[in-house]
Design a binder for these strands. Structure first.
Length: 463
RNA sequence: GACCCUAUCGUCUAGAGGCCUAGGACAAUACCCUUUCACGGUAUGAACCCGGGUUCGAAUCCCGGUGGGGUCGCCA
């Protein structure tokens, strides 16, 4: 049984890198008929917030990444962690350490000054025939894992291949703080064990934690999961993403008018491939997804390609869905679009020309509410001959059959009569009707706008 | 600094020793379509980091260098 998990810490929003990790873990479980588990790693009480938990849940919901189990919260599993720590203490695979945080910091500084790798010096580590110092009064002991000192820890990484790290590179890390709360590297192991996680798919930044975690698994006599480490996503500028540089919430993509299927498809292709396939549904993705075709090196985020994908999915999107999204977006700007019945047809007209929902809403705006063209624009386009032609056209519009073909004939008859070329009338007409010189085919615009609005808007400038 | 990972067009990538005069996509450029702006279509330019091996043959395997990234917390 394949069981994967996504285990974010609730210290901020769900960003693009986390979303991709979740997507891959989710797809792997789906591909193999397994389970995808959501686990909130909230043992850092100082930085975890309920708002961040909600932000992560929101992000996953928007993307449509559903989980089969969870969310589990580590803070609710304290008893279990403490139980395991007691076991390790009595088994001698963990020990109390009374070195204070200040002393540790000082130690690290000195080691760095000597160009050594900063590490715990093992002062409190029990050793055969070694006399331990007397525990200082009033200092709360942290618990450290007694890491093996010899040999190498190796595993076959599902994306990077064989990796080996010498135990000599690892020090005895803290598994429980002075106040008794367990720490990350320890909780992860207990959870992955208890939750029967078979494949740990996570970010590259955890590679160096893996040997430590494997050592704990071994100390506990627990079966090891398989590990796969996904490389980083770099920003559009090639710089690494961080809270102060480029890392944005997936929900910001929603605000910027991206469709979840576009973001998902983009993320899927960032670091994974299936031959030359560029666009695919999540069903196809789940059917194709494998760990063998994941790129081992970091990938640079490319907004232009995301934009292209978004435009691609916009073209395929259902008109009524787009209309609903447009109404919501215009409402945020205080514009009532729900009252305009032609909105779905406006969507059909514009969804092939824009690359996001905000542009679509901007395009729909003048259909719902008359925009008054600027005096400059009117002066530029409404010359004497054009005014005359518009008056003629307006007359024809009063009686014409209101459909694109007939509207087009009315325009053609009018330009012939006034000796104009098509653009000479079509462009001013666009300005009058929509407040801007560009639009889809003018007959289609007229048809969707409706006789009443058209006559009213022409009348406003000619009358 | 130490350790670990990594390296194909500007970007995402295909590529598992001969199929590669290196393929696709985004972006760029040109042209076509056209009732404006877009969409779309066609075409063009654009890459195997460097140096050594192994092999009849290397983008693909090995070693070294260089570049990039990650980690070195009583954060996760």
């Amino acid at each position: 049984m394949i069981r994967t998990r996504f285990a974010p810490s609730p210290t901020g929003f769900l960003h693009i890198g986390g979303a991709r990790t979740a997507l891959f873990a989710w797809a792997y479980a789906r591909r193999h008929g397994g389970s995808f588990i959501l686990r909130i790693e909230d043992t850092d009480v100082a930085r975890s917030t309920p708002a961040a938990v909600q932000a992560i849940l929101d992000g996953m919901e928007w993307l449509g990444l559903g989980y089969d189990e969870g969310p589990y919260y580590q803070m609710q599993r304290m008893d279990r962690y403490k139980e395991v720590i007691q076991q390790m203490l009595s088994a001698g695979t963990a020990y109390h350490c009374y070195t204070s945080a200040d002393e540790l910091e000082k130690m690290r500084e000195e080691q760095r000054a000597r160009n050594e790798k900063p590490r715990y010096d093992g002062l409190w580590r029990p050793e055969e025939g070694k006399a331990l110092p007397r525990p200082p009064a009033g200092v709360l002991a942290a618990v450290r894992f007694r890491n093996p000192t010899e040999g190498v820890v190796s595993w076959h990484d599902l994306v990077k291949g064989p990796i080996a790290i010498a135990n000599a590179e690892l020090d005895d890390f803290v598994i429980a703080r002075g106040d008794g709360t367990p720490t990350y590297n320890f909780c992860v192991v207990v959870d992955d064990w208890d939750m029967n996680i078979s494949h740990v798919i996570r970010g590259d930044d955890h590679v160096n934690n893996t040997p430590r975690q494997i050592n704990i698994f071994k100390a506990l006599g627990a079966p090891l999961p398989l590990y796969g480490h996904l490389s980083m996503i770099l920003g559009d500028d090639g710089q690494k993403l961080s809270k102060r540089h480029g890392a944005v919430s997936v929900m910001q993509y929603e605000e910027e008018g991206y469709l979840p299927e576009a973001v998902l498809n983009y993320l899927a292709r960032l670091g994974w491939s299936h031959g030359d396939e560029e666009t695919f549904t999540m069903e196809q993705f789940c059917a194709w997804f494998d760990l063998d075709h994941i790129t081992a090196s970091a990938a640079q985020f490319n907004t232009e390609k995301l934009n292209w994908l978004n435009a691609h999915y916009l073209k395929q999107a259902d008109d009524s869905r787009l209309a609903a999204a447009t109404v919501r977006r215009l409402e945020r700007q205080g514009i009532d679009a729900a009252g305009f019945p032609g909105l779905p047809r406006v969507m059909a007209l514009y969804k092939e020309r824009v690359s996001n929902l905000n542009e679509l809403a901007d395009a729909a705006h003048p259909f719902c509410v008359a925009l008054h063209p600027s005096p400059e624009l009117l002066a530029l386009h409404l010359t004497g001959p054009v005014r005359g032609a518009l008056a003629t056209l307006s007359e024809r519009f009063k009686t014409v059959d209101w459909q694109a073909q007939d509207l087009s004939l009315a325009i053609k008859a009018t330009i012939a009569e006034h000796g104009l070329k098509m653009p000479q009338l079509a462009i001013p007409l666009r300005v009058v009707l929509l407040g801007q010189p560009q639009s889809p085919a003018i007959d289609a615009v007229l048809e969707v706008l409706g006789r009443e609005r058209v006559l009213e808007r022409i009348g406003r400038v000619t009358g």
